[in-house]
Structure formats: structure tokens, C-alpha cells
Nucleic acid binder design. Structure first.
Length: 821
DNA sequence: AGCTCTGGCGACAGTA
DNA sequence: TACTGTCGCCAG
């Protein structure tokens, strides 16, 4: 075993027992699970220079203290329990006799560092540790469907299925509807799980995990819950897939069925799980159907992992950051902490205590250029490779490398806003280009080192991606992995900017972002200087027209070899990791607004686009999961036509007019018009505004619908997607209904056209054909207005059949939406 | 053991 | 009709 020979301890899991022990779980060379208990260390660090003799004496004499020892310029003070440590270091809930809310250490004028650190993280940090690959299984359970989700703990578990990595399957089903049978069912599950370390379930954190935990407790089954790595596959999928998914279709639903269809082309077993009880109660073949369904569903998780590799990716990330691959391991603050604390060992560095959230401290972020809108030809795009990580490296930015500020604005009475003060830059420091802060160059900062490894991994997948034709499945796979490392690398910056993190440093975070603003503006200015035309830029990318491919390549080279080195040297940067890359060219680019555009590739990093290459679409409704499908389809159609080079407005007006008629009069499917939005918080947390007359104002439609669903006992916890339709948009607030409550006949057709379907397409056409604004606008009106004179019968722009009037059936066998569906 | 960040668009409810 | 505040989702 590698762990043993290199003096490292290999662990597959570890947990705190809640008192004074940390339990280490390992796999020995035969693959057997071993448990070992070590002491939990409840520790904080105090600066020697801050600790007064009197306080030191107090601490030594205190019965709360286990002991203290010197470590370089720090005192490491070990408390007997975590509670005692918290008492000494956290702000007390109530004021003391003097009316002040001060902790013991605050009163002693010494700042405790890392006091809140979890005992497991403490152990992982202080020891040479290797995170082992867990034995993984996938789990899914079926429970009594008669019990509403909100009372799910009262539902009896009917069956479970477990599948391992190789596809070996286990399952069991409830024998009788009583506690003894359920007890047997769960005992079988726990005995099986005992051979695994990691349990993966879809929406596990929201359903399966709390469920088996609650039922086991209820039935008196004692298990050491923390002995497993519980991983919610859905949450992981969302985190990793968000930047890889192509259209809003993929985001509309994260139900397992929808995701597996999108990723695997495979549909969930055909069984209505909301009637699980009936299947079970019927017994015999019906009951077996339920079990088969349960097993197949579980196996989908394994197949999904085979197709995406996301769990493997998490494994890689966790091993690199000394973090366990469970749901918490996905958390950025957590794995960044793991990585940085390890890196800080032996550097005489410790980090602040974060018992409580210190409050938001906002800072300035990236620069987004107002785009040139409409149809643009031959646009070249360059972008900085891993911009924020490179900035961190180049200026050696890190909380502990921050030096003095040497310039700033002279604001106050008597000064103009552009007047600045300056001091000379001290030796051994480099200078931020715009905010006056300096960073030492005498040693390498923690952040810079951390970022280097992630950049290396990302480069590997990016190189592969660039060698493949854009849009192909291999390209997408490489893109997915490269995105995951990008997410991780950018997380380091994000965590520095997060007040929840012990590494939070507003100055450093803002310096990173503003370094990016300065660099991007350098590029834009240079392009203008070279006579090119800048059409857009966002954070780390510049969109430029008026250049040939060769010229643009030379332009990028010039920046890399002349401009950046010159400017960075002027600022005293110790190194230059800034690299601009020629990313792609579009022959047609439809620019709608900031962050919303569609482009047709000529090439991507030199790889020529093929017939099968899909266009790049960003930010538009097509990409969004909270839009109506009909809006996405229409917009997609228009975008594709525009990108093929058909820029004749008349054809588009006709196409829109046809769609308009179809939507107002033809047949539409519910799935075309359903809206689906996530509850971003619990229902009670939404702002409840009062109207001027003192009555309650309406909340957003999806929240109103969620309130209704809650009354029926449905799951409306944070994160739930609420599917709804608008049944009458003429009233304010609009009348809405849960999608499952109504049929297409109940949906407000004018609303569909005027608000759901057309606007997304209209905005695209408006920027492309500004001369046709009037016509495009007129097409958007369908509802007869009481104010307007009654339209002539047969007028092309007004639907003669108001809502509720029976519609004629469309001709047999004809697509109703002009063939777009 | 709850929490990467900022910038930005568009939908709605409500006000003036 | 223009504007404000809240919300969700997306770009980077």
C-alpha cells in the first residue's frame, strides 16, 4: 500500500464522534474496511506577539485547556472540548456584566485563529493523509406513495435497490405492511451497505438519505451514519453540467428520467412511481414490477456516471484537496480550505476563525462592454486563458502577500475625484495596475501555488478539446472536463471573495477582478489602436471585427510578446502568466445584448468547423430552463436561419405570422407552454410586500403556485421546481395554475403568444432588422383591446377567436406550428 | 460543517 | 407608460 510505504495514512472516510474522538475508516491491502480512533483536537492558534504573560498564565491554569505548545511564532492551544473552545473564542449570545458582547479572547486582546475548524479537518491538515478511492454503490428506494412528501418520514419503505460499479445488483422488497417487515428490509440494506464506502443517490440529500435515516431511527436500528460518504448525484450533476448543457431543454427538469433521456438517450422504466403503494399492495407480478423498476432506476445512475464521469471528477478533485467525496466535498469553501490548509503547513501561517457569518462586504467585479448589436460578420474572439488564476500568479496575490497601498484617490473636501496620492513602490513588491495595492515578490503566495496545479489539469483537457472538431461528442466531453477544472480554479478566487470563508479577503478578491478589468481594457484599446472594431467584451474575452485571421493572430501575438511583458514589468510583477489566446472566429454573429448572442463557427482554436458543428448560443432564451419550450423552439429556428446567412427580413416576418396564427388558433401541447422555475429558498423566506392599501401584494407566480401545492402536502422545499401555466393574464396579478391541474384549453392563448412565445424571437429579429421595428412590434399584439376599435373581421393581426371560444381542429396530419415542432 | 464571486437580462407586481 | 424592487437564471 502506497500510504504505508510513504509514511502517509490512507483513509477512505473519517468522522468526528461528537466528543473527543475522530474515527478513521480505511481500506487495507485486502480491501477490508478498518476503523481506527484517534483523539479529536480542539485547537486554536494565538500569535505569540499578541499573547500577554497574564493571559498565558490564565490559560495554563485553566481547566478548559488540555495543553499548549509553541509552533514557530504561534501558540497552539488545545481545549478539552469543542464547546469550551467555542465558549472562549466565539462572540457570546448575551452581553457580559459590563454590557458588552465580548469573547474571552477578545477581552484578553488576542485573536484566536482556526478555532472553529472541524476536528476531522484538523486531523486531515495536521497529518500526512491520502484519500483512498471509496467502494461505491448506487442506491434508490421506493416508499409508500400515499404519504405526502412533506411527511415522507412517515412513509413506509417498500423496496430498495443497490447497484455497484460493475453493475452487480441487489434489491429487496417489503414482505408485510408492518414494522417488523420494514425492520428486516432495512437491516438487509444496512448489512449490504457495510461493504461500501460511498453511497450515491439521485436527490439523495433531499429524499433517500433522510428517508432511510428517519425510518431506521424510528424502527430502532442503530447505525453509524457518518461511516458512509453520502453523495447526492443530482447536485453533483447540476454543478458539473451547468456549463456543458446545450439548451434549456436539458435544464428544465433535473428529474432522473429527463436527465437520463438527455444524456443516455435512455428512458426511465415505465412505471408511475406516484402509485408505488398500489403496485406493492397488488402483490405478485405487480409487486415485482415495482422492484424491477427500482433496480433499473438505480442502474441508470451507474450508466449516467459512465457517460459523464462526474463522480470520478469529484474523486480527482477531492484527492487533490484532501477532502472526502461526499455531498459536502462538492462545496467550494470546503475543498479550497482543504487544499490551502495543506499548502500552508510549515509556513508559519494560520487563518482566521469563522464561527459566524461576518456579513456581506461587496466588491467591484468584471467589466462588460456594451456590444455592437445586430448581425455582425467575421468576428474574431480572443480570451485570456484562466484569467483570474493567471492574475493571482502574476501579481503573487494572496492574503498573506498583500503589502502596503502606494496610491489612491484623494477624495474629500477640496479634491477632484481624479486626483490621486502616490508613494514610491517599496522594494520586493509589485504593484496593482489600478487600485494602488502592492504584493510582496519575496516569496510565493499560497494562492499562486494552489492555482498552478488546477491550471495544469485544465490545460490538458483544453488542448484535447482544441484538437477536435467543434460540436462533436468528443469535443463536448473534453469541454465538460475542462469546464470542471475551470470551475475549480475559479472557485479559488470566489472563496477568497466569500465572507463565509476563513480565507476571505476583500482587497485581494477585488484586486484579482480589477486586474482583469485592466487587462481586458488593454486588449480593447490595442484593437482600436490597430484599426479594428471592438464589438463586445466580457470579463476575459474580446470580440473583434475588421480583421483577417492572420492579422488577428498577429495582434494576439503582439499583446502576448510585447504589450503584456512591457506593462507587467513596469509594475514590478515577479512573473508573467498572462496569456491571451485566439479562441475562435464566427462568420455570422447575432449580438442581441450583453451576454446574449449566437454565432456560427468558422473555426475553434484553429479546428475548422464542419457541417455538423453546432452554433454557439449564449444567454438567449434557448439556453434557459425557465422559458417555455415553444419560445426556445421558435428562437432556435430563427437563430439557425440567421446564422446560415439568410438575412432577408420578409421571410422572417412571414414565418412569425404563421407561428402566430398557429399558436392562437392551432393545437398546442401543454409541454410547450409550461413554465418551470426553482424555489431558490424556502417558501417563508420570500419577501412579502404590502400594497399601498395595506393588503398583501402578490408574490411571483411560481411562489403563488408553490403555496397552493404546499397546502396539498406537496414537496415545496428549497430547490423544488414549480411547473405552472398562466390561465388569465388580463388580471393583475395574473391567474396561474399548477401545470398538472389544467389542460391546454385553460391556458391563456394571447398570453402564450404575447408574453411567452414571441418576445424571445422578437428581440433577436429587432436587432437584426431595426428598420422593421414597427412590423415586428405589430406582430406581437394579439389580444383584442377594449380601448382599441374593434378590428375588421379577418384582419391579419388580430385573433378573431377570443379565449374560451372553441377552436376549429387543425388539418389532419399537419404540424401545427408551421413545421417547427 | 450551509453558503465561491460579480455583472447582467428579462419577467412580474406594483406605483406614480 | 416609465420606473422600482424582487426574483431566477445565465455569462464569465
Amino acid at each position: 500500500m502506497r500510504g504505508a510505504s510513504s509514511g502517509r495514512v490512507a483513509v477512505v472516510n473519517a468522522y468526528w464522534d461528537g466528543k473527543n474522538g475522530v474515527v478513521l475508516v480505511s481500506r487495507d491491502s485486502q480491501g477490508r474496511r478498518q476503523r481506527r480512533r484517534v483523539a479529536a483536537e480542539h485547537v486554536c492558534y494565538l500569535r505569540k506577539s499578541e499573547l500577554k504573560e497574564r493571559t498565558e498564565r490564565d490559560l495554563r491554569a485553566s481547566r478548559a485547556i488540555h495543553g499548549m505548545r509553541e509552533e514557530d511564532s504561534w501558540w497552539r492551544v488545545r481545549f478539552k472540548t469543542r464547546d469550551l473552545l467555542r465558549k472562549a473564542s466565539a462572540k457570546p449570545r448575551w452581553p457580559g456584566p459590563d454590557g458588552e458582547r465580548l469573547s474571552y479572547f477578545e477581552r484578553a486582546h488576542v485573536e484566536p485563529f482556526e478555532a472553529d475548524m472541524h476536528p476531522v479537518r484538523r486531523w486531515l491538515t495536521d497529518n500526512e493523509v491520502e484519500i483512498q478511492r471509496p467502494k461505491r454503490c448506487y442506491l434508490d428506494i421506493e416508499a409508500d406513495s400515499r404519504v405526502s412528501f412533506s411527511r415522507k418520514e412517515e412513509a413506509r419503505i417498500l423496496s430498495w435497490a443497490v447497484v455497484d460499479d460493475e453493475g452487480k445488483k441487489w434489491s429487496a422488497v417489503l414482505e408485510d405492511d408492518d414494522d417488523a417487515a420494514e425492520h428486516r428490509l432495512l437491516m438487509k440494506l444496512w448489512r449490504l451497505l457495510d461493504q461500501f464506502d460511498q453511497v450515491v443517490a439521485w436527490y439523495g440529500d433531499g429524499y433517500d438519505f433522510p428517508m432511510i435515516r428517519a425510518r431506521s431511527k424510528l424502527l430502532g436500528i442503530q447505525v453509524q451514519w457518518q461511516g458512509w460518504l453520502w453523495l447526492d448525484h443530482l447536485e453533483l450533476f447540476k454543478k458539473m453540467n451547468i456549463s456543458a448543457s446545450e439548451s434549456g431543454d436539458e435544464k428544465q427538469s433535473y428529474r432522473l428520467g429527463a436527465v437520463s433521456t438527455a444524456v443516455l438517450g435512455e428512458t426511465k422504466a415505465d412505471l408511475d412511481a406516484s402509485r408505488s403503494w398500489e403496485y406493492w399492495a397488488a402483490g405478485g407480478a405487480k409487486r415485482q414490477e415495482l422492484v424491477d423498476y427500482n433496480v433499473r432506476d438505480t442502474d441508470l445512475l451507474r450508466l449516467l456516471e459512465n457517460a459523464t464521469g462526474y463522480i470520478e471528477l469529484l474523486q480527482v478533485l477531492c484527492q487533490a484537496t484532501t477532502t472526502f467525496p461526499d455531498s459536502r466535498g462538492m462545496n467550494g469553501t470546503n475543498y479550497v480550505e482543504g487544499f490551502l490548509l495543506k499548502l500552508a503547513r510549515g509556513r508559519d501561517l494560520h487563518f482566521k476563525t469563522v464561527w459566524d457569518y461576518g456579513g456581506r462586504i461587496p466588491f467591484e467585479g468584471a467589466y462588460v462592454l456594451e456590444p455592437k448589436k445586430g448581425i455582425l460578420r467575421d468576428v474574431h474572439v480572443c480570451d485570456f486563458s484562466s484569467l483570474y488564476p493567471s492574475i493571482i500568479q502574476t501579481w503573487n496575490m494572496s492574503p498573506e502577500t498583500l503589502g502596503p497601498r502606494i496610491s489612491g484617490s484623494l477624495d474629500g473636501p477640496g479634491y477632484r475625484s481624479d486626483q490621486k496620492w502616490h508613494k514610491p513602490r517599496p522594494d520586493g513588491h509589485c504593484e496593482h495596475p489600478t487600485n494602488g495595492w502592492t504584493f510582496t515578490t519575496k516569496w510565493m503566495g499560497l494562492l499562486a501555488e494552489a492555482v498552478t496545479e488546477l491550471k495544469r489539469l485544465r490545460k490538458h483537457w483544453n488542448d484535447l478539446k482544441a484538437s477536435l472538431p467543434p460540436g462533436t461528442p468528443e469535443w463536448k466531453e473534453a469541454d465538460r472536463r475542462s469546464s470542471a477544472y475551470k470551475i475549480a480554479a475559479n472557485t479559488f478566487y470566489g472563496v477568497i471573495g466569500s465572507p463565509f470563508s476563513r480565507f476571505f479577503d476583500r482587497v485581494v478578491a477585488e484586486s484579482v477582478a480589477q486586474g482583469g478589468v485592466w487587462l481586458l481594457k488593454l486588449v480593447l484599446a490595442e484593437a482600436e489602436h490597430k484599426g479594428m472594431s471592438v464589438v463586445f467584451g466580457d470579463t476575459d474575452s474580446a470580440f473583434v471585427a475588421g480583421s483577417t485571421e492572420k492579422q488577428f493572430k498577429a495582434f494576439v501575438d503582439h499583446l502576448n510578446t510585447v504589450v503584456f511583458p512591457r506593462e507587467l514589468e513596469r509594475l514590478g510583477c515577479p512573473r508573467n502568466d498572462i496569456k491571451l489566446a485566439y479562441e475562435k472566429q464566427f462568420d455570422v454573429l447575432v449580438m442581441v445584448t450583453k451576454k446574449r448572442y449566437a454565432g456560427n463557427f468558422v473555426h475553434y482554436k484553429g479546428s475548422r468547423a464542419t457541417k455538423d458543428s453546432k452554433p454557439e448560443i449564449k444567454g438567449l432564451e434557448f439556453k434557459r430552463g425557465d422559458t417555455a419550450r415553444i419560445a426556445r423552439r421558435m428562437q432556435e429556428k430563427v437563430i439557425h436561419r440567421l446564422l446560415t446567412g439568410d438575412h432577408e427580413p420578409q421571410g422572417y416576418l412571414e414565418m412569425v405570422a404563421e407561428w402566430r396564427t398557429s399558436i392562437l388558433e392551432g393545437e398546442i401541447e401543454m409541454s410547450d407552454v409550461v413554465l418551470s422555475k426553482r424555489l431558490a429558498k424556502g417558501l417563508g423566506e420570500y419577501k412579502a410586500k404590502k400594497k399601498k392599501d395595506g393588503t398583501d401584494a402578490a408574490q411571483p407566480p411560481h411562489v403563488e403556485v408553490a403555496k397552493l401545492l404546499q397546502q396539498r402536502g406537496a414537496d415545496v422545499s428549497e430547490g423544488t421546481r414549480i411547473a405552472y401555466v398562466v390561465t388569465d393574464a388580463t388580471s393583475s396579478p395574473m391567474r396561474v395554475a399548477p401545470a398538472d391541474d389544467v389542460t391546454i384549453e385553460d391556458v391563456d392563448r394571447h398570453y402564450i403568444w404575447e408574453n411567452l412565445a414571441y418576445p424571445a424571437t422578437k428581440r433577436v429579429l429587432e436587432v437584426c432588422f431595426p428598420a422593421y421595428g414597427k412590423e415586428l412590434k405589430a406582430l406581437g399584439v394579439s389580444r383584442p383591446s377594449a380601448r382599441r376599435p374593434k378590428p375588421e373581421p379577418g384582419s391579419p393581426l388580430v385573433n378573431p377567436r377570443a379565449k374560451g371560444v372553441r377552436r376549429r381542429k387543425p388539418p389532419e396530419g399537419q404540424g401545427t406550428l408551421g413545421g417547427i415542432m
